[in-house]
């Protein structure tokens, strides 16, 4: 079970505001290019896709590749529409899947 964190600004958010959302997840992001001391391959183990859903639509998504750092950190902006859950979904190698949800409170 991975540890992940989603950050929504604590300040008062009004409808129509541009809000910066941040997310971080604990993941080794093993590139697959490294080898062990004895020369054996270390198999690739990365997150392949991240998406964020808010108010019924996908507001952000991206593909990850082997050069992304461990514990990938994401920050992007979206427009606040209504109070509701903001869900991040990370999927990756070896059937990795993690969902982390936080509630965005929007005042009219």
């Amino acid at each position: 079970m991975a540890t992940a964190n989603v950050l929504i600004p604590r300040s008062v958010i009004r409808k129509g505001d541009i809000v910066t959302l941040k997310a971080i997840i604990a993941h080794p992001m093993e590139t697959g290019f490294r080898r062990t001391e004895t020369g054996g391959e270390i198999p690739r183990n990365i997150i392949r896709h991240v998406s964020c859903h808010y108010d019924g639509v996908e507001v952000f998504s991206c593909d990850f590749h082997p050069s992304i750092s461990a514990n990938p950190f994401l920050a992007f902006t979206t427009i606040a529409t209504k109070t509701g859950p903001v869900s991040f979904i990370w999927t990756g190698d070896n059937g990795f899947r993690h969902v982390e949800t936080a509630i965005m409170n929007v005042t009219d």
């Binding site: 540890t3 964190n5 941040k22 971080i24 997840i25 604990a26 950190f73």
Partner: peptide, 12 residues
């Protein structure tokens, strides 16, 4: 603390 990856370890 949010961007410090070591804090993920603390949470664990």
């Amino acid at each position: 603390d949010f961007s410090n990856p070591a804090m993920l370890s603390v949470r664990e």
